[in-house]
Nucleic acid binder design. Sequence first.
DNA 1: CTCTGGATTAGCT
DNA 2: GCTAATCCAGAGC
Length: 201
Amino acid sequence: MMTMGQCPLTTKFMKLKRDFFLRPTLEVAKDLLGKHLVYESPEGRVVGEINEVESYIGQDDPACHASASPKTNGKTERTKTMFLEGGHAYIYFTYGMYYCLNVVTEKADYPSAILIRSIIPVEGEKIMMNNRAKSTTEYLANGPGKLCQAYGLERHQNGIDLVTSDVLYLEDSGKKIKKFQTTARIGITKGQDKLWRFHYE
DNA sequence: CTCTGGATTAGCT
DNA sequence: GCTAATCCAGAGC
């Protein structure tokens, strides 16, 4: 059986491949816990360990941006990224001032994605602090808006293919998270019955 | 064209 | 706990 373990050659960690993202969204979401989100920013390399995610799955999920409306069937200028093949980055703008990063999952034309809500800084903390200079908080990236601010991710990175990109991608840290909490998603008014948020301390 | 509310955050009461 | 900040996508007309 193939494992997603560490690369035996020179690189310490292995980039996640397409197959990882084409699986059922909830499985991908749980497996994303502990993985490294890497961004080769203009200022330098930024790495964080994912410790909180939320799943948004298909036109029937009322909280999903691509939830079906009769006219568009959920596919609009904003949400078309969610209809790409699993492994792409979906970044959207919200509340007039924040960006949120999602990882698209499953096959093309099935709009599903995982919101990366929080990371633990691993590398490039100085860059993150500079990007969030206006804030006094010690927590650099423990929230979807703060995370994008810390990394410096904006509209420009929307639609990047995380599988083929050398700028923004995910890699296996070799760490497997066995114990994590499962709760309802945060900040939504519809679909609160679905326990699709996974996180650990 | 106009209107509404949001997958948030920081700061204040 | 409450809410301002700040803007734009989506829906309705």
